[in-house]
């Protein structure tokens, strides 16, 4: 709640009337919203509802065709400088981890700082090791991604994103590709990150995590946000039929 109050004067992400088409398919139909510094938002909805596309537009993995996105005061346009600025400020964690298989875990993390931030190699490695410490897998630094478990890979991926010192972290279904026993180790890391004050946008089906961590839950369906509310309201007093159906279906599992 605290986040929402100071938020009004300090939005870090502003989206206005965001539209996106894949050929003829209208994926995002006018999303208008903003996120505050330090806010933890969980985005949920049925598959194909546009929730992943939405967060992917925020760092230009998908191009939006109409509307404005302003991130930390920088508008996301065709301006190469702005795109690069925003990508450095926005970290992203993918469903399939997308670690670079030909690099060690450590090299995965140091690549961005060395090549993009032009950091010295020794310094980057020190930062990377401390990040691996933070996600609790410092002992796996010199292994290759294929040699560690899915949960560990996802934690390396989080560390890789954090190494760029982003102001915002995007999570695109970070636990969907994981075996059940590995989900909690990733959620623990995300929880710790949330408590540290990071601005986080999380697309997930983990409703327990949403209820516990989120400041706000947004429900996407067919390219529009049909309901957004703090978790308590969202779960206990959903307004829309679609939301009610979704919650009852998700909680059954």
């Amino acid at each position: 709640m605290a986040a929402q109050e100071n938020a009004l004067n300090d939005p870090i992400i502003i989206c206005e009337d965001l539209h996106k088409w894949f050929d003829d398919f209208h994926v995002l139909k006018g999303i208008t919203t903003s996120f505050q510094k330090g806010e933890r938002a969980v985005i949920c909805g049925p598959s194909g509802s546009g929730k992943s596309t939405f967060i992917r537009t925020l760092n230009r993995l998908e191009e939006h065709q109409r509307g404005t996105i302003i991130i930390d005061g920088v508008e996301l346009t065709d301006d190469l400088r702005n795109i690069n600025l925003i990508r450095q400020e926005v970290g992203m964690v993918f469903q399939q981890f997308n670690l670079f298989p030909h690099l060690t875990n450590l090299e995965n993390i140091t690549l961005g700082p060395i090549r993009v931030r032009k950091m010295a190699k020794s310094e980057a490695e020190a930062v990377a090791l401390s990040l691996l410490e933070r996600v609790d897998i410092a002992d796996q630094a010199y292994k290759y991604p294929a040699e560690i478990s899915g949960g560990q890979q996802q934690r390396v991926a989080i560390a890789r994103a954090l190494a760029m010192e982003p102001k915002i972290m995007l999570f695109d279904e970070p636990t969907s590709a994981l075996d059940p026993e590995m989900i909690s180790e990733v959620l623990d890391v995300m929880r710790e990150l949330a408590h540290s004050g990071m601005t986080m946008l999380v697309v997930t089906h983990e409703m327990g995590f949403a209820r516990e961590v989120a400041d706000r839950i947004m429900f996407f369906d067919e390219g529009v946000v049909i309901e957004e509310a703090p978790p308590a309201d969202f779960f206990d007093n959903p307004q829309h039929e679609r939301t009610k159906l979704f919650i009852s279906q998700t909680l059954q599992h």
């Binding site: 760092n59 230009r60 993995l61 690069n84 990508r87 450095q88 926005v90 970290g91 992203m92 993918f94 399939q96 997308n98 670690l99 670079f100 690549l111 961005g112 090549r115 993009v116 931030r117 991926a157 890789r160 994103a161 760029m164």
Partner: peptide
Amino acid sequence: VPSGQHEAAQAVGLNYAQ
């Protein structure tokens, strides 16, 4: 090379050449 590799590289901030 899966498209996820390109996306991850972009997300880390690498340009096309990198």
